Simulated assay, not measured.
Amino acid sequence: MSETTTKMIFSVSAVRVDAHGSLARCKNADITLDTDLAGRLDAFNPAELLMAALAACMIKGIERVTPILKFKLRGVEVRLHGVRQDVPPKMESIDYEIVVDTDENDHRLELLHDNVKKYSTVFNTVAPGTQLRGVLKRAN
């Protein structure tokens, strides 16, 4: 018996604007990319963009599972810190802290964190090649 699954398809295009930056497009959205060798402060560089994608995926995963778990929250913040190695160039490690504003108990927080790690596409894509570690905790 074969299992049929529907696969999600994503399309993004990027174009070099000049030596200082590029523009990525998807749906009706544009993101300015820092592709300047000297760097620029008003755009995400590729490593920061990867980390932002990881944070967005974690938050989206939380949005997806909170109704299923009947988990009540007022807000979520994800903080990430990445370390890049030079040879070969790659993200060596990413540490994260997911801060949830909630009154749920510690067991429920652990359950939410388990779901984030298990069902987040970008998390599961990054994890095999990067030392990915972090915590999910209650906001003070």
Rank of each mutant, 00 (worst) to 15 (best):
T5Y: 09
K90L: 07
T121H: 15
K118T: 04
V126F: 11
L37P: 12
N140F: 05
I98E: 03
A127Y: 13
G82A: 11
I98D: 06
A24W: 10
A43T: 08
I59D: 14
Y96Q: 00
N28T: 14
T35E: 04
G21C: 14
E97N: 05
G61S: 01
L49M: 11
S13R: 13
R108K: 11
L73T: 00
N28H: 15
H113I: 00
K72C: 00
R84M: 13
R25C: 12
D30P: 12
K7Q: 15
A56S: 15
V87M: 05
K90T: 03
G75L: 02
F71T: 01
E104F: 07
L50H: 14
K70F: 00
F44E: 07
C26M: 11
I68T: 07
L37W: 01
L49D: 03
E104P: 12
E77H: 03
N140D: 03
A43F: 08
V65F: 12
I59A: 13
T6M: 09
G129W: 12
M58L: 02
D18H: 11
D36N: 15
K117G: 04
D42N: 10
S93K: 13
R133V: 14
A24P: 06
L80A: 03
R16C: 03
I98F: 06
T32L: 15
S2D: 14
A38G: 11
M51V: 07
C26D: 10
L111T: 02
D95W: 00
E48Q: 15
P46W: 15
V17I: 14
L41R: 14
G82P: 00
D30F: 15
T66E: 05
S22R: 02
L54C: 02
H81A: 12
